[in-house]
């Protein structure tokens, strides 16, 4: 084959692969939406499940998802941001930072089922929290911690050195410099990280099922067990309780993930534009 023909063939294959990938994505999203949207209604979103979820709505699972996500963020955000500030502003590369980075990278790679096992044995059993929002939230917090640390670190690193210099020259202490010069500039990046972490918490199943439980009731306190939308979807689908409700729940899940993604990427795009204009 000539060079030109090889190239045409190779590029053809690559185009095909790209189109195929997008088609599969469209198929997955489309299928769930097409089968799920017809049974979506306000009543479905605000109603309580009846008959194990065969009838009624999914309101408690929506609440469960949001509350669990928020609790995990409440724990992971301060830890993650503090950790990132320390790594970027308070220390130089050393054995210590390398150890901390190793911890973060490794934690990011730990499979969710391991988090589930750990959360079950540590939070649920050892610390006697039972299956609860607290146990699930803490487990998820550890899971999303690396995401928050890494995005925050990355966002802080992009703040120009000149900001720091100006701040110091005005007599600021290190902490004043961090809070007045670094964090405000890095805030959009930090928020994006938090949103992405929330997305991860929303779509998690394996770690949640062993730590937050599967109870279908509205939670009353952080010691109540909850069922998240993803877990509800799993149970509806695998147990064959109701395919119709499973699709509807799946549609809500996908829309939620979609919204989270859109917010995150529009946040970034807007800021990029602002930057370009500058």
């Amino acid at each position: 084959m000539t060079t030109a023909r090889t190239q045409r063939f190779a590029f053809g294959c690559i185009w095909l692969a790209a189109v195929f990938t997008l088609a599969v994505l469209a198929l997955v999203v489309g299928l769930i939406m097409v089968r799920g949207l017809p049974s979506l209604s306000i009543g479905f979103l605000t109603g309580t499940p009846e008959n194990l979820g065969r009838d009624g709505g999914i309101f408690p699972t929506i609440v469960g998802t949001i509350v669990l996500g928020l609790v995990s963020l409440l724990i992971a955000t301060p830890l993650g941001i503090g950790s990132a500030i320390y790594l970027t502003e308070y220390t130089h590369e050393s054995l210590l930072t390398r150890a901390i980075r190793f911890g973060t990278e490794s934690l990011a790679g730990v499979p969710s089922i391991i988090f589930g096992l750990f959360g079950f044995i540590f939070f649920v059993t050892y610390l006697q929290m039972g299956w609860s929002i607290l146990a699930g939230g803490l487990t998820l917090a550890l899971m999303v911690l690396p995401t928050i640390i890494r995005t925050t670190e990355e966002a802080i690193r992009t703040v120009p050195q000149s900001y720091r210099n100006v701040s110091y020259s005005l007599g600021a202490t290190r902490w004043q410099m961090v809070t007045t010069a670094v964090l405000p500039s890095a805030l959009p990046g930090i928020i994006t990280g938090i949103i992405l972490a929330f997305g991860r918490a929303v779509s998690e199943t394996a770690a949640v099922i062993f730590t937050a439980g599967t109870a279908l009731n509205l939670p009353k306190s952080v010691f109540s067990p909850v069922r998240t939308m993803a877990v509800h979807f799993y149970i509806l689908a695998v147990e064959g309780i109701s395919l119709e409700k499973a699709y509807a729940t799946g549609a809500v899940l996908i829309v939620t993930v979609l919204i989270i993604n859109v917010i995150a990427s529009s946040l970034i795009t807007r800021l990029v534009r602002k930057q370009v204009r500058r």
């Binding site: 301060p78 830890l79 993650g80 941001i81 503090g82 950790s83 320390y86 790594l87 150890a99 901390i100 190793f102 911890g103 973060t104 490794s106 934690l107 730990v110 550890l142 911690l145 690396p146 640390i149």
Partner: peptide
């Protein structure tokens, strides 16, 4: 201390 969070978790 917060920086040790991930390492402690691991």
């Amino acid at each position: 201390i917060t920086a040790f969070g991930a390492l402690v978790a691991l």
